[in-house]
Design a protein around this nucleic acid. Structure first.
Length: 728
DNA sequence: GTCGGACCAGTTTTT
DNA sequence: CTGGTCCGAC
């Protein structure tokens, strides 16, 4: 290959030393790049691919780049093609699921699938499991379908098939196994594949077919993985399998930004690489190009409270910037009002600042409501991230289910969804009878329906309705139309359009709009020319695998999102609200073994989103789930050194640290041996009622505690005389 | 088949 | 307090 000095220049030009060291490492070397927030990790990954292809003669064709989200994959593709200014054909860039899916489409037969296998999302998966739990007459209180879904996915993530499970130790295991087995059989019969299954199948496919494995190992001499801290056990195994002895791995990740432990991600996989891959080199990217010094100092100080880190310290060559502003609100309304005011004054203060540069981050979605209210009041445009996505809407999923059924009549999940939707006189009773036939003879619902008609198994009326449904689908399936025309036909001939049109409500109008949008989407849909799938098949897979977040984000609006959603993004002005114990760290998260540390990482992610200015707010009282809370400020707030913080004072001058103190320091200082920590304890007082301890001082007879009483406000009490009763 | 009321649960979410 | 789901009545 021609080595173009100009391009090489571009590849290494604007890199700092650590980045360059990573990008230009020998091709034969495994690399682990520990990349802090805002240190240019995606950049390093892209430039590495370019370097390999331009300097090391590892053609793009021999590289495999893996990400977690489609967004990241698309970004990588785009940036790479503009860097190299050449076609990227041959390069595999994609998500774990996208790539595994591709393998399955090519080798469907070896993977023991049918050619028309379909992907189901977690929603469909849950439906199916519900159905199975019901059919087995299992108590869904003792075995909640949601939980069973978790168990099944966890099995799959550990590469465990039903037949691998040894004799169950207890009833719970046994029931889980039973459900898993049924679920698996059902999916296999209906040719359905869930998310975890895509990965597991692809893994088993390669494992069971040595020639295939050899082929892909030879083809992909270099594998590059983004956000490695988010890999789960199966993904890790997948990478290892594909690497073999010869393959070389290049990985970027940040153990401090591992926030998906609760769904199986194992940040330890980063450490694991160091033992599993001989000679892997670790490079740290610690220079940050995003935030001010103050913000980075706060983030560094916070994350230091975590154990078991690979360890790194962010720094910047830029300004120290402004202190982090702390706002202590009276209640959530006050907090929201404050945030909105600050957004307004911040944007007005300087030309060139606009709303989309402002983000409000929160731990739980429930907190967005009041913010929305206030923003609406002030007529400030905003956008809330994460809600139902387009392809998850009911009417869209209905249409897609029809399309699925056209491709594969044995797709029971699709059959059940649309057989009576819109209503066409096939009620629960008829469906139950079909199910019985299907179960009894090992047929799909479609086959059962055909059979029922042939044998006139039940009431004429139902049979004729079923017959009409079958011929509707058959006629549609017989069409040899373009994808968009077909979709149009499905929407109209199925009666969906009519169904929604009859109703005059606003939501129904929206549904019609969505259906039109779906047709538009099919019109502009372009199938990848070298996919082995038909247009329809490709479209269906894409809608599940890439739910397409990217809706008109071009408008200038304040960004509202959860901390999880904010990962990977950056904003000049950031608000972190609801910084309160129980809420953040979240009460539920503390139940998990490493819960607190993950919450702290989440906070670290939040802080490091801010480029110029960060506000953190917490309130004295907050209504949540209908009850009034009087939360203490989050411990995370107290883990940030005071000199980096500046309290925003409005009318009421209250000093957070006078009022609450750094309780950890306080407890350490005032509690030589014997005084227990009361802070956080809920108590009952004979006169003042219920409250929560917010501070304490002294020991023995001098011990005093401050209690925030729910009815009577804050009081200092001498512990010895207060007659307090501890509440759970 | 649709509507209304009772009941219940309630972190985080991409694929 | 909310939103979703389930069940019984028309």
């Amino acid at each position: 290959m021609d080595k173009n000095p100009e391009i090489i220049e571009q590849i290494i030009n604007d890199l700092n030393d650590a980045q360059r060291q990573a990008v230009c490492a020998p091709a034969a070397q495994h690399q682990l790049v520990l990349a802090g927030a805002g240190s240019g990790k995606t950049r390093v990954l892209i430039h590495r691919i370019a370097w390999l292809s331009q300097v090391e003669d590892v053609s793009l064709y021999k590289q495999l780049a893996v990400t977690f989200t489609n967004k990241a994959a698309a970004e990588m593709r785009q940036r790479l093609s503009s860097l190299l200014n050449l076609s990227l054909s041959g390069l595999w860039v994609g998500t774990f699921h996208g790539l595994a899916h591709r393998l399955l489409r090519i080798h469907w037969h070896e993977a023991q699938l049918t050619q028309h296998f379909q992907i189901i999302d977690s929603d469909d998966q849950l439906r199916l499991i519900r159905r199975i739990v019901k059919d087995l007459q299992i108590d869904d209180k003792a075995y909640p379908p949601k939980q069973m879904q978790g168990e099944i996915n966890r099995y799959k993530e550990r590469c465990i098939r039903p037949q691998h499970i040894p004799a169950p130790q207890n009833t719970y295991e046994q029931i889980c196994l039973e459900i898993y087995q049924r679920y698996h059989n059902h999916c296999q019969r209906s040719s359905l594949v869930d998310f975890a299954e895509i990965l597991l199948r692809a893994y088993e496919l390669l494992e069971a077919h040595p020639p295939l494995l050899t082929h892909y190992r030879q083809r992909f001499s270099h594998i590059l993985v983004d956000e490695f801290q988010d890999t789960n056990q199966l993904q890790y195994a997948w990478i290892q399998l594909l690497l073999g002895e010869q393959g070389r791995l290049f990985v970027v990740g940040d153990d401090d930004q591992s926030i998906y432990g609760w769904r199986g991600a194992q940040a330890d996989n980063l450490q694991k690489l160091q033992t599993d891959l001989k000679g892997i080199e670790l490079i740290r990217l610690e220079q940050n190009y995003r935030s001010t010094g103050m913000i980075l100092d706060a983030a560094n100080a916070l994350i230091k409270h975590n154990d078991k880190r690979l360890g790194k310290q962010l720094w910047t060559a830029g300004d120290k910037g402004q202190a982090i502003q702390i706002y202590h609100g009276v209640n959530a309304e006050d907090e929201a009002r404050f945030i909105v005011e600050r957004i307004q004054s911040w944007t007005e203060k300087q030309a060139g600042r606009d709303y989309q540069q402002c983000a409000v981050l929160y731990r739980t979605n429930a907190l967005s409501r009041l913010l929305e209210e206030k923003l609406l009041q002030k007529q400030i445009p905003y956008r809330v991230y994460g809600g139902l996505r387009f392809f998850e809407r009911m009417e869209i999923k209905d249409t897609l289910a029809y399309l699925r059924l056209l491709l594969n009549k044995d797709d029971d999940s699709a059959f059940e969804r649309v057989v009576n939707h819109p209503p066409r006189g096939i009620g629960g009773r008829s469906i139950e009878q079909l199910r019985a036939i299907a179960r009894g003879q090992g047929l799909s619902l479609w086959q059962a329906a055909e059979q029922a008609i042939k044998t006139e198994a039940f009431a004429k009326r139902s049979l004729s309705a079923i017959g009409k449904f079958l011929s509707l689908i058959q006629n549609l399936a017989g069409e040899n139309e373009e994808l968009s025309a077909l979709t149009h036909k499905v929407i109209h001939q199925s009666g969906l359009w009519q169904h929604f049109k009859q109703k005059k409500q606003e939501t129904e109008q929206m549904r019609l709009d969505n259906l039109e949008e779906l047709i538009l989407a099919t019109e502009s849909y372009e199938t990848d020319p070298d996919t082995p799938m038909s247009d329809l098949q490709a479209f269906l897979s894409d809608t599940v695998l890439d739910a397409g977040e990217g809706q008109s984000s071009s408008d200038n609006a304040v960004q509202l999102m959860t901390l999880h959603n904010a990962k990977g993004l950056e904003f000049p002005l950031v608000f972190l609200c609801g910084m309160e114990e129980e809420l953040f760290p979240h009460r539920m998260a503390l139940q998990a073994p490493q819960g607190l540390e993950e919450e702290r990482r989440l906070c670290y992610v939040g802080i490091t989103r801010a480029m110029q200015q960060l506000y953190i707010s917490h309130v004295e009282s907050r209504r949540l789930h209908g009850n009034q809370l009087y939360p203490r400020p989050s411990r995370f707030l107290l883990e940030i050194p005071q000199e980096l913080l500046e309290e925003v004072r409005l009318q009421t001058p209250v000093n957070l640290y006078q009022q609450y103190g750094n309780y950890q320091a306080k407890v350490a200082k005032d509690t030589p041996n014997n005084l227990e920590n009361w802070i956080g304890q809920r108590v009952q007082h004979p006169r003042f009622g219920e409250g929560m301890v917010t501070d304490q001082e002294g020991a023995g007879k001098a011990a005093r505690i401050q209690v925030m009483f729910y009815q009577n406000g804050a009081k200092w009490l001498v512990l010895e005389y207060a007659q307090l009763e501890k509440l759970p």
